[in-house]
Design a binder for these strands. Structure first.
Lengths: 339, 339
DNA sequence: GTCCCAAACTAGAGCGCTCTAGTACCGATC
DNA sequence: GATCGGTACTAGAGCGCTCTAGTTTGGGAC
């Protein structure tokens, strides 16, 4: 910085002004400084600038590495954080690196807010963390308290699945359950609610999970059922699970959607490929990311005077999902409708 | 830090000594300081410590968010960086955030070295970057110069594929090509070499790519071929592409491996699922990560006196892949062997 | 010409650490 | 009792920025 200042014939302070993009430098000087910086291949040291200023203007994010939907969310987060004048600091969660450890490094970086994608930490820990600084849990609802929540209306999503299948004439509609994963309880609830609305519907719960593997296993259970008790349609916890299910069912010689209709959840990229063409409930990664940043930026930039913890707990942001109909669902056949 | 020092009744310098874990503090004091820190919920500010010390001890990593194999690599990188006393700074690449932008933020963080996972930057840029600081390109080979390379022996991998299929009696073995992706050229070369070793083998190249989508498209081309010219086996650029291919071929009523054998590349988690059971060439993410960190740590910690750029360009580290035989390959049938 | 004010610029004290060059103390040595 | 050597600890000057509180400059307005 010293060198750039010297080369441009100005003070260090002026260089700082130019690089922060604030008022207080003439157009001519601004260009002279930038030119000098370019010649010297200088770029401000982010560590030092964050140290010097009272605000770090960074948001920490924990995410599962290699998780496709988290990837979509990160893309959206990068865009909106940038627009709001924040930088993202990523901290990955892997089988050998716990979410708690990931959060620890974010705190040491002095992030101003923390974003947890699909957190698996218990509520008590989250509460404790939220007492220190603004936290938002994305995808996973947290009972109450200071933790911000941005999520899809999971229950509504499963209601969409069930209503779609019901509308196609299906009666035995199974839930391919997600177990203890973020959002699974809500989706289960949505399934139950929708199923109980109509007395003609029969509930069946198949144990599923988050990956294709569990979907495949559920498919074997499904195939083991007698034709009378076998569901004619399946509403899955998520797309990957649905895809695994479809794979195995097809390998067994059944047809999708001819013999069984399947609805996924998420609308991952793969679901849209022509050879998959999975009917699914879409989670809007773009909006989830946008709302997450907005929630945090609102609290941090505190439009009103009352920023800090004394304020009312942030209202959860719940985004409505949308049914995307593709080729994995069809009207119930006579055989199916009969059961 | 001030507060911790006061509470423990020592100087700030002593607190620093304790937290850096260096010699110079008695056991009793050490515990007293740690206790005080715990009570105050203090943790050192990483920005400030990096600023204060001459070394930042950080390695920057660019990766594609949501990319499954990059996830596996990150896991390994986290483990080995930690063991070598380095911290990782992640910078994600998304459709709207270029690799160049990702690198820019890493430079501004003053990382000591940069790790590029599956870089898509041109060689000239990489060279320029490597002139500034140690860089290693993982998965993608770079012609020569200062850029370090850690990769799988892609050519050998495809030779393994072809030899395996040849050994099963296949003659018409197609390459499901990866186009311009990192490593694709090498794999193409390996395929050609292996095919030309035996005059009985017939080369067929199908345009593929990196995702299931391209594999599915290639399958349609494949199905369009007459039975005489249709290959009896396919060596794919990667697992995802292979999986898309298999899906479509099966949906068309053909059997894998009965009618066509398929070999993937990478050995992603999904390939090992029982309902997929893809024969594939395994890339060892664990070792790739380990070697990457080792390469960088060697240069940075400069075992010998001559660290810096004057040194001999780092030799590329090439890791041998391994064939994992599962259920997507089988001996050529009479029909297949005849063609 | 004088006064005033905004715009353009600078000096220098932090930010929370690290790290060098010290001081204080204690037991062992002769 | 003076000297040594080593361990435990401290003072204080940076690290590369930010940011407050200035100082200087260049036009108008009268």
């Amino acid at each position: 910085m010293e060198h750039v200042a010297a080369r441009a014939g100005v003070s260090r302070a002026l260089v700082s002004i130019v690089f922060r993009g604030v008022a207080g430098a003439s157009e001519a000087t601004r260009e002279r400084v930038l030119a000098a910086a370019r010649e010297l291949d200088y770029r401000p040291d982010t560590r030092a600038s964050r140290l010097g200023s009272s605000r770090t203007r960074t948001l920490g994010v924990t995410f599962s590495v290699g998780h496709a939907f988290h990837g979509d969310l990160l893309e959206s987060l990068y865009t909106h954080a940038d627009a709001a004048g924040y930088e993202l600091v990523l901290s990955g969660v892997t089988p050998s690196r716990s979410e708690a450890a990931a959060v620890e490094t974010l705190l040491a970086e002095r992030c101003e807010g923390i974003i947890l994608l699909g957190s698996s930490q218990d509520t008590a820990r989250l509460e404790r963390l939220a007492a220190r600084l603004p936290v938002v849990s994305v995808l996973r609802p947290v009972a109450r308290g200071e933790v911000g929540v941005v999520r899809t209306d999971d229950a509504a999503g499963l209601r969409l699945s069930v209503e779609h299948l019901h509308g196609l004439g299906h009666r035995r509609i199974a839930l391919l359950d997600g177990g203890r994963t973020a959002g699974a309880a809500e989706r289960r609830r949505g399934y139950r609610t929708a199923m109980r609305r109509s007395p003609t519907l029969t509930e069946v719960v198949l144990t599923g999970g988050v990956t294709e593997l569990e979907g495949a296993e559920a498919a074997r259970t499904f195939l083991g059922l007698g034709p009378r008790e076998r569901p004619t349609a399946v509403a899955a916890f998520n797309d990957r699970c649905a895809i695994g299910f479809v794979d195995v069912v097809r390998q067994a010689g059944l047809h999708v959607p001819g013999d069984v209709s399947v609805v996924g959840f998420d609308d991952i990229t793969e679901a849209g490929y022509p050879h998959v063409a999975l009917t699914t409930v879409r989670q809007d990664a773009e909006r989830l990311g946008a709302e997450t940043v907005r929630t945090l930026a609102d609290r941090l930039d505190g439009g009103s005077s009352d920023r800090g913890s004394g304020t009312t707990p942030p209202a959860p942001v719940v985004i409505e999902p949308e049914l995307v109909v593709r080729a994995s669902t069809a009207p119930a056949t006579r055989h199916g409708a009969r059961s």
